[in-house]
Nucleic acid binder design. Structure first.
Lengths: 150, 150
DNA sequence: TTACAAAAATTGACAAGTCATCATTTAAAA
DNA sequence: TTTTAAATGATGACTTGTCAATTTTTGTAA
């Protein structure tokens, strides 16, 4: 049994709200650590993977830095710097936007697409390994998380 | 409606597992950002708050660095450095353990306890503000997260 | 007892989150 | 048109997460 009380050796919580906050933070760490070791051999971080995933989702349409930021899991992150890291690995290219010279168009490269392709089966396998729930439970969990944020 | 699809502007997901991973990572960021701005006026981070909470839970019993690490939400974190930050703010004291000189006993100070006391009502209020669920839903969510990790 | 392995904590290096500030460029107001 | 405000991205400083290496101390086996 993976009860949160055992995981962090805390017998009881002030109230159910507090327990839920702790449980979500702990579960995120559980997933993030797994993701981290999955991506490590490919020399990218979960955050960089997420940016690549966003760019692939744009299906070849150039995407600005702020648009990437809006789609990121962590809105406070520093998309500008992540893009720079990806560029130095030749996983994306960055071109000045002709319409608005303040903006910068970001595009995933073939090398970036190949990396996502290689990772795909491993990501899917890891997701199944680390989520011990059936489809109905997953749907309930997704709905409750959505509702929780209001 | 706070659906995850809208939050990150992604129409659909590869599979329910993938959607759940994304949803948990996003929800953690949602909570962590709220915590961050709550603690900011008190010049501590959510992680430092968590260490103080652990020490208070020990009820005056000296706690070693590795024991703190075991109880932290993020097991990969650097407890040694967090303790050093708290010590420089006089929120904890650090004494060499007499039985085993490799270990270091950490104890929360009165100043640290006072800080937790001041924060308590605000943390409780924030938890309620950011969790739009009833008690039954919270319990279901807690149970599903526990089961998910196996 | 010596020698070696394990445990505990610290430290260094790098990536990412957080936040403030800056420069450039665009859009709007006077 | 001139001035002002807003948008966009980059950068710097600081904290934390991640992980490997190092130091000190303890425990154990030869």
């Amino acid at each position: 049994m993976g009860k949160i009380e055992d995981a962090i050796q805390q017998k009881e919580f002030k109230d159910p709200f507090n327990k839920l906050v702790v449980n979500i933070l702990y579960t995120q760490s559980y997933l993030a650590t797994a993701q981290n070791s999955l991506f490590k051999p490919y020399a990218i971080s979960p955050e960089q993977y997420n940016v690549l995933r966003i760019l692939k989702g744009q299906a070849g349409i150039p995407t600005t830095v702020s648009s990437i930021q809006d789609r990121m899991l962590n809105k406070m992150s520093n998309a500008s710097r992540l893009v720079e890291k990806l560029k130095s690995k030749e996983l994306v290219i960055r071109t000045e936007c002709p319409n608005d010279r303040r903006q910068v168009d970001i595009l995933i490269t073939q090398k970036g697409l190949d990396l996502l392709q290689d990772l795909r089966p491993q990501v899917e396998e890891a997701n199944r390994d680390f989520i011990n729930l059936n489809l109905e439970e997953i749907e309930t969990l997704n709905d409750l998380l959505d509702k929780m944020r209001g």
